[in-house]
Simulated assay, not measured.
Amino acid sequence: MSDISQAPIESRGLRYPFDRVPEPAEMMEAAPGVWWVRMPLPFQLDHINLWLLEDGDGWTVVDTGVASDEVKALWREVFKTGLRGKPVTGLIVTHLHPDHVGLAGWFSRKWGVDLQMSRTDFLMCRNLVLDTGRDAPQEALDFYRAAGFSDRGVESYRKRFGDFGQRVSRLPDIFRRLREGDELSVGGRTWRVVIGSGHAPEHVCLYCDEGRILISGDQVLPRISSNISVHPTEAYENPLQEWIDSCKRIRESLPNDVLVLPAHNEPFYGLHERLTQLIDGHEEGLSKLLDMLDEPKRAIDVFPALFKRKIGPEVFFMATGESLAHLNCLLGRGLATVRRDEKGVDWYSRA
Rank of each mutant, 00 (worst) to 15 (best):
P255G: 10
L91W: 10
V194C: 09
E284T: 15
E210W: 03
I300Y: 02
G13L: 03
L53N: 03
I279D: 04
V315H: 08
R126D: 08
E23F: 14
D257G: 02
Q241Y: 09
Y157K: 00
F303K: 08
V193P: 02
D218W: 01
D209M: 01
G332Q: 09
R15C: 04
L41T: 02
V129C: 11
D341K: 07
V62C: 05
P42K: 06
S216A: 14
G188C: 05
L271M: 07
I300V: 15
L254I: 04
K110G: 02
E342I: 12
G344I: 12
D114N: 09
L52T: 01
D280N: 08
K297P: 00
K310S: 08
G165I: 07
S349Y: 04
E26P: 09
F143Y: 08
V129I: 12
E242H: 11
V230T: 03
M28C: 11
R158A: 00
R160P: 03
C329W: 00
R350L: 12
R212L: 07
L141D: 11
L96D: 05
D46A: 08
P172M: 11
I48A: 14
R76D: 11
V101D: 03
G105Y: 07
G133A: 10
N227P: 04
D151I: 01
M28P: 07
V66F: 09
N227R: 00
V194S: 05
E183W: 08
Q44W: 11
E23H: 12
A104R: 04
L128C: 13
A7W: 14
Y144P: 03
R176Q: 04
G148L: 01
G105L: 10
S2C: 13
R179T: 10
S11F: 15
F79P: 06
R298N: 10
F107G: 02
G148K: 02
L50M: 13
G13Q: 04
A67E: 05
D280S: 04
F143S: 01
V230F: 00
L83K: 05
R340D: 08
G56N: 12
E10M: 14
T132Q: 15
D301F: 05
M124L: 13
Y348Q: 07
G281R: 06
N265S: 13
C247K: 05
T190H: 11
R340A: 10
R333M: 09
G334P: 02
G112S: 00
P24Y: 01
P304T: 04
V193Y: 06
G148I: 05
W35M: 12
L96P: 01
G165V: 02
L123P: 07
E54N: 14
E266W: 06
R189G: 04
V93M: 10
G153H: 01
P222W: 03
R350E: 13
D257P: 01
V93N: 02
D173E: 15
